[in-house]
């Protein structure tokens, strides 16, 4: 089976890669909050956010194609919804686009959605492509995210491809025996497959648990955290929080003038 990577570039060495995941998690989370709460007409602020992210992207040494591909995966869904807004929303003057008319308010909403989602997706890519998934989860645990949640994430990361491989083997075995999926009664087969997959996963869960017990598991997952929160981390957090804040305030000022 082909082996896919969820965090393919997270091994790439860069100043961002070496930062404590906690700094990236907290810093970029606040950055996204600042970004989505900015009024849409503060264009200068949005430009500043983008510049900051491009700067970080440059520091991360990520190939731009990788970043573009990731952005393009998420954006179409958001834009597909937002694209219709200018035609239906009223107010704020209207512009004629051939036979169609577009409202100013609608355009502003489209801009709002497009800008904020692009910037947010970029921030998430910056986080996930510069942090190995295991470290990200450990960072969350250090930040007191409930262990149930972090364990779920970490087991999902470990087993999602084991599960998809298993499903794919089942599908091949099914198709090898002439299954076409053309008739309604064949839906039963799909139901059986889902049930089998569930049972197998359940049994695997029991075996994994036995393997954990065999190595002394007593209810809490131990971890070695290879990072510390130092000057570089504080600098990063200050940069991604204070720079956008300054840009936002400045942008208000420009608007008032």
């Amino acid at each position: 089976m082909q082996h896919s990577f969820l965090d393919s570039y997270s091994g790439l060495d860069s100043p961002l890669r070496r930062l404590d995941p906690r700094a990236k998690l907290a810093g970029l989370f606040i950055f996204v909050l600042l970004c989505v709460t900015t009024p849409p007409n503060l264009y200068v602020a949005f430009a500043a956010y983008l510049v900051l992210e491009l700067m970080l992207l440059f520091l991360s040494r990520l190939p731009w194609r990788h970043v573009a591909a990731r952005v393009l995966v998420v954006l179409p869904f958001i834009l597909a919804v937002a694209l219709f807004l200018p035609f239906f929303k009223k107010g704020g003057g209207s512009y004629n686009l051939g036979p169609l008319s577009v409202s100013g308010h609608g355009l502003l909403v489209l801009w709002n959605v497009a800008a904020k989602s692009t910037l947010s997706v970029l921030a998430v890519i910056l986080l996930s492509s510069t942090t190995p998934f295991a470290d990200l989860v450990k960072g969350m645990r250090k930040m007191r995210v409930p262990e149930l949640l972090t364990s779920l994430l970490s087991f999902t990361y470990r087993y999602i491809f084991v599960l998809t491989d298993e499903a794919q083997r089942m599908r091949r075995a099914r198709d090898s025996r002439g299954w076409k999926g053309r008739w309604l009664w064949q839906a039963r087969t799909v139901g059986h497959m889902v049930a089998t997959l569930f049972l197998r996963s359940y049994e695997r869960g029991e075996r994994v648990y036995a393997a954990m017990l065999a190595r002394g598991y007593d209810g809490s997952l131990p971890m070695v955290y290879g990072y510390s929160f130092g000057d570089a981390e504080w600098a990063f957090v200050c940069l991604v929080v204070l720079a956008p804040l300054a840009a936002r305030v400045l942008s208000y000022g420009l608007l008032a003038v």
Binding site: R158, A211, P222, M223, V224
Partner: peptide, 19 residues
């Protein structure tokens, strides 16, 4: 796949000693 349940080889091999 049952024995190795951690996201990285390191975490798996360290699991026992840490416990």
């Amino acid at each position: 796949d049952d024995q190795l349940f951690s996201p990285t080889v390191f975490d798996d091999v360290a699991f026992g000693p840490l416990n």
